[in-house]
Design a protein around this nucleic acid. Structure first.
Length: 558
RNA sequence: UGGGGCGUCGUCUAACGGUAGGACACCGGGUUUUGGUCCCGGCAGUCGGGGUUCGAGUCCCUGCGCCCCAGCCA
């Protein structure tokens, strides 16, 4: 077991533990705003902050950064907790920024008393205009030099609800010519006569992120405050407020967020997909949300493994979804029991098997795990096989069933195709085959070999089901780069298969627990129901034949 | 033409002045009662130019490229 190289954040903490910067404490936090569901990008942040705490024997808080009542809802508070727990993490303290509103208000009064904050009567438009530009300094607000007494009075009246939304703000007095735009007298309180999901109507002023976040970290005694790269520009103001107030001062550290190919990750865009009905909801199995992956059949372990393998650094990155899928398959292969299911059935009649008889055959549940045991699968004279497993005029590399060919039915018998039955349109309706009783279980006593093994289901015993096949939600690698990402939606991201035939043991499948349908992929029962059970395809198996077909097709085009 | 960050195989990520390594992807081959898994092999990279050094992805200079910032969002 070679030791994994330590990423830059681990090294910073190692160093802090040498110098005793935080008395060798490690206390992180995951601070989502409850304005949407968590996605796989959040999972990276969760795995990082909770993972660091675990590794260093420290703590990690789950803190709702609920400072903007207009965007936030209780539903999201609930879903976020469920998702963090599902990922396998237990927070040390469950916190809400709104619990600190009074304390933050009192700190703001301190700042005013120090002469470091003022009430500004400028309109939003006027503030924007006087902020300057990237290359031009801003201008001081005409209200910048109000007396402490006047500021105190005005701020109190803001809090009392005496002024209209947007009519005044409390601003930090820093430097309107600062090269960092965030330092040009940032707004720290705005008037919002809005109902808050936790503090109800207690407040009509709400703190801004830059003011609130560092205070939240400070109040909770956070040591290392991990956030994404876009907050790098905010670190000077994070530090400025804490220094100005002379309070406990955590260290903010920024890392590059996760991006995935063929995926959008912004909450705004995910919200749009939900609200405009492009998907069935936040937990649509095609969504990159934690709840979507959960419903799709992803395991928490595979997501955690993925996060562990992709690393933590500061450069912008786009992970290929194939890497996520690869990590998923690795986990599912070891974990999942095997079953047989036919998605696109073609009837096979075994002409030399007694019509009124059946038998059961013993099948292995998981070749990767002997302790998973075996099960019995019924066999009879009428079966279903996958339509794709038969070709009337097979090309060279196709070694499945064809006229006159012999193949193995998994765990059952060798069968040979004698007749192809078609309807008036020329569509194949069924195959007439004979079986070799000597090959029971799948081996020929005479040692003869077959080139293919097919999965199958007994027609008399099959369970009918609906199966939903998912493909990537977007048809281009970088939907974010499109003029309109909606246009990049993959019209074939969902394919519903009806009349699928399952082996009977699948009746007992548990919702959300993935199982391998042999030769097809990993599937799990959905919480949705109609008259038939519904299964989601989590991820297909690697498909060498599909690759050959693709190569043949592109070869023919040349 | 302000400020802050970042440039290593196609994609992620190692190297901490001393043989540029791993994973995914891709391409070959072997095993196989899943065209799965597993095993073996291959392909492929330090943004450019100078400098320091016995030795530079790493240090210095310089150029280039990419990302973020002008919400009373977070």
């Amino acid at each position: 077991m070679e030791n994994k190289p330590r990423h830059f954040i681990q090294r910073i903490i190692d160093e802090d533990n040498v110098t005793g910067k935080f008395e060798n404490r490690v206390h992180t936090r995951f601070p989502p705003e409850p304005n949407g569901y968590l996605h796989i990008g959040h999972a990276k942040a969760i795995c990082l902050s909770f993972g660091i705490a675990d590794e260093f024997g420290g703590k990690c808080n789950l803190r709702f950064d609920d400072t903007n009542p207009i965007a936030e809802e209780e539903e999201f508070v609930q879903s976020i907790q469920a998702d963090v727990e599902w990922l396998g993490y237990a927070w040390d303290n469950l916190c809400f920024a709104s619990d600190y509103f009074q304390q933050m208000h009192d700190y703001a009064v301190d700042l005013i008393n120090k002469g470091s904050a003022y009430v500004c009567d400028l309109t939003p438009e006027k503030i924007r205009k006087t902020r300057g530009s990237l290359t031009q300094p801003g201008e001081d607000s005409p209200f910048r030099d109000r007396s402490v007494a006047e500021n105190l009075d005005l701020f109190q009246r803001m809090a009392n609800g005496e002024f209209e939304d947007g009519s005044r703000t409390l601003r930090a007095k820093i430097d309107m010519a600062h090269p960092n735009m965030n330092m040009r007298d940032p707004v720290i309180y705005r008037i919002l006569k809005a109902y808050h999901h936790r503090t109800k109507d207690d407040w009509c002023i709400y703190p801004m992120y830059d003011w609130a976040h560092g205070l939240e970290d400070s109040i909770e005694g956070i040591t290392h405050s991990l956030c994404s790269l876009e907050f790098e520009d905010h670190r000077p103001i994070y530090d400025w407020f804490l220094d100005e107030l002379d309070v406990y001062h955590p260290q903010q550290i920024e890392f590059a967020r996760l991006n995935l190919s063929y995926t959008v990750m912004s909450k705004r865009k995910l919200k749009r997909l939900v609200e405009d009905g492009h998907v069935s909801g936040w937990d649509d199995p095609r969504m990159p949300t934690i709840s979507g992956y959960r419903r799709r059949g992803y395991t928490p372990a595979s997501i955690r493994k993925f996060m562990d393998e992709i690393g933590v650094a500061k450069r912008d990155n786009v992970m290929e979804v194939t890497k996520l899928e690869s990590t998923l398959r690795e986990d599912l292969n070891k974990r999942c029991e095997r079953r047989m299911a036919v998605l696109n059935p073609l009837k096979v009649v075994i002409t030399n098997y007694p019509e009124d008889e059946s038998e059961t055959l013993s099948a292995v549940n998981n070749p990767e795990n002997e302790s998973a045991g075996r099960r019995e699968v019924p066999f009879s004279n009428e079966l279903y096989i996958e339509r794709d497993d038969f070709m009337e005029d097979p090309p060279k590399k196709f070694f499945r069933l064809g006229p006159g060919r012999e193949v193995r039915l998994r765990y059952a018998y060798f069968i040979t195709c004698n007749d192809v039955i078609k309807d008036d349109n020329g569509t194949i309706t069924e195959l007439h085959c004979t079986y070799d009783p000597e090959t029971k279980g799948g081996n020929a006593p005479d040692g003869r070999k077959v080139k293919a093994t097919l999965h199958w289901v007994s027609a008399h015993h099959a369970v009918d089901a609906e199966v939903r096949l998912y493909d990537r939600l977007f048809k281009v690698p970088s939907p974010d780069g499109e003029e309109n990402f909606i246009d990049a939606l993959n019209p074939e991201s969902l394919r519903v298969m009806n009349g699928c035939k399952l082996e009977p043991s699948l009746i007992n499948a548990e919702v959300g627990v993935p199982v391998q349908f042999e030769r097809l992929g990993y599937f799990c029962k959905d919480s949705d129901t109609n008259e038939f059970p519904i299964f989601n395809r989590t991820v297909p198996l690697r498909d060498a034949w599909a690759k050959i077909e693709k190569q043949n097709q592109s070869g023919q085009k040349k």
